[in-house]
Design a protein around this nucleic acid. Sequence first.
DNA 1: CACAAATAAGACTGATTTATCCGAAATATA
DNA 2: TATATTTCGGATAAATCAGTCTTATTTGTG
Lengths: 150, 150
Amino acid sequence: MGLIFSRQCEYALQSVLYLALQPKGELVSAKELTKHLSIPYHFLAKILQTLSRKGLLVSSRGPTGGFMLSMPPRDITLFHIIEAIDGIDFTNKCVLGYRRCSANSPCATHDEWASVREAIYQMLISKNIETLAEAARECQSVQCVTQALA
Amino acid sequence: MGLIFSRQCEYALQSVLYLALQPKGELVSAKELTKHLSIPYHFLAKILQTLSRKGLLVSSRGPTGGFMLSMPPRDITLFHIIEAIDGIDFTNKCVLGYRRCSANSPCATHDEWASVREAIYQMLISKNIETLAEAARECQSVQCVTQALA
DNA sequence: CACAAATAAGACTGATTTATCCGAAATATA
DNA sequence: TATATTTCGGATAAATCAGTCTTATTTGTG
């Protein structure tokens, strides 16, 4: 479908944002996440495991177990999440798909796209989860709260 | 894989650019395109058919048949091609994947992304194929020519 | 007309992504 | 310790995307 994130990545972004909205140090179970975010349970569980393995989340087993952010929301950027889930090939891949095109061997249109790619990259590394969480918190309307959490 | 175009879309972009580099009014066969662009023949044929149905290309059957642009390269933007192949859901789809998020019912982070989405959109409708073709033509190095055409 | 070369169209196969299922390991609590 | 609840990990199924194959239709040329 292209151009935006994979579904896994969307789910990961939603989950991390949800965790950032919780009181610091509080564990949230996959069950609660799947309920509030309407994400298929087993699929979500796998994504949370991936985020844990990559070091973005800390997990705890057993009853009262769950997941929480491994670091302050401010230190987690959108780029971190995308990197963990989708990978970051897009940062140096030719948008036209030319196999042999790269920064030091650019295709005819490489430079035309460079600024766009750079803009996306800058946005991804500059937006941190705390900022998004604040935006969600400050928005008091029912709509925003339910959507931020669902 | 996310974030950039589908492979079909990449192939379509490459094909249209190749056609734009041909003398005006000249038909190019799928065979020639598949040879120069290294795209699987039957897959490419389908993509060219789609582009024809969508009105971007004109096709002609029989020997001496082939494809050519249906309008001046200047009138074809990247957006046209993406629209024809991948669709344009991304222009109003929530980047976080929230089902209920839209412009008039934004999620907490909608506005944070609006500028990026708009930047991408503007770039896609402002870049026309003639510009890219010129860039390819002006670049005289072997590398650029072979890459623009292969 | 007969033939060859090209597009048109649909069915089919394979790969990747998305989603589901099941059993094992960990752990809080009674 | 027994049990319930949770994450962990691998196997499997369904859906979508990428690529292949076959046949029909069109059309220029001998």
